[in-house]
């Protein structure tokens, strides 16, 4: 391996910029799922929600030509997936794991089905593409050598994703709503006994989370690829769940973990591109191994919401 070539600034810039780009859907999805999980619902359908977001944004943008409409569609789709989850989990009290898995399969089937019937040209299947979002260079800042190219020449949604982190932190830790959501996830009885609306809070949290996860999906199509490919969420929804665990349910740690995982991904892409003989699959598997190691340390699990995945019954 030629160290010099590798350290060439252009490559490094590429890797770092890619890191931020790859982080975008992961951040959006994990911030959304974080809110859901902090309210006590473990939405395993995160993967399917990302996929639905990707598909609906692609479909709507293709049919309307508008990126904004596509983005909105993804948000709505994510919200609907969340609605299904919370209705079945909270009102009907079905098992959250089962609902989540079925949601994933539902999304997988529905997106392929819908794609197949929506894109036909004269009876034959077509594979259209869309015009993806442009990079938005921040004036002045993007001109700074190196830093400008890495940080300030990204797409709009990327900036949004990173700004979302302090916003979610603020929501959870500095607002009344955030306090109520976190309390719901820790000990629903406490929330109920203080006269707050448990169900309303629950529905809101899961819907809100779902919308952000749907938005994450939109980045995969509108922000990256110009096509829609079956199952293009490719494990990102699951990775968001892993990231939340590794980040101990705290926004800034989640940011850190996301950056690490995204960096590894960007790195392995570069390595693949350069043609180096290195088991890049190992790098790809690292996040998952890491998550297991984190779960093994008891300190790490200390911040999981106390009532995660358990439905609340007032009579209990």
């Amino acid at each position: 391996m030629n160290i010099n070539a590798f350290l060439q600034t252009a490559i490094l810039i590429n890797i770092l910029a890619s890191t931020l780009r790859i982080s975008t859907p992961l951040l959006l999805a994990s911030m959304g799922e974080l809110v859901t999980e902090r309210s006590g619902v473990w939405n395993m359908g995160c993967e399917g929600t990302v996929l639905m977001g990707a598909f609906t944004s692609f479909l709507v943008t293709n049919k309307t030509g508008s990126l904004i409409m596509g983005t909105l569609a993804a948000i709505v789709a994510g919200g609907l997936m969340g609605l299904i989850m919370v209705t079945l989990a909270t009102t009907l009290k079905l098992d959250q794991t089962v609902i989540g898995m079925t949601l994933n399969l539902f999304a997988s089937g529905l997106t392929v089905f819908w794609y197949t019937i929506a894109f036909k040209v004269g009876g034959a299947q077509s594979y259209p593409s869309i015009a993806t979002a442009e990079v938005v260079k921040i004036p002045f800042l993007s001109k700074i050598p190196f830093i400008g190219e890495v940080f300030f020449s990204q797409k709009l949604l990327t900036y949004f994703a990173f700004l979302l982190v302090p916003a979610i932190w603020y929501l959870l830790y500095r607002t009344w709503l955030g306090l109520e959501i976190r309390s719901l996830g820790e000990y629903p009885r406490a929330v109920d006994m203080r006269g707050l609306h448990v169900n309303r809070l629950q529905y809101f949290s899961v819907l809100f989370g779902g919308m952000l996860v749907g938005l994450a999906g939109s980045f995969l199509t509108l922000g990256s690829s110009d096509l829609f490919i079956p199952n293009m969420s490719a494990g990102r929804g699951w990775l968001a769940i892993v990231i939340i665990i590794a980040g101990n349910w705290q926004p800034y740690r989640i940011l850190l973990v996301t950056l690490i995982f995204a960096f590894l991904d960007a790195l392995q892409l570069q390595i693949q591109g350069v043609g180096v003989q290195f088991p890049y699959q190992f790098l790809l598997a690292l996040p998952y191994i890491f998550a297991i190691l984190v779960m093994m340390s008891s300190r790490a699990r200390s911040n999981a919401p106390g009532w995660l995945s358990t439905p609340y019954n007032r009579e209990d």
Partner: peptide, 18 residues
């Protein structure tokens, strides 16, 4: 009916008028 992982203040404030 206290939330063990929250602070004293957070527990007191939960559910108060605001």
């Amino acid at each position: 009916v206290l939330i063990r992982s929250h602070s004293v203040l957070e527990n007191i404030l939960l559910g108060t008028r605001h």
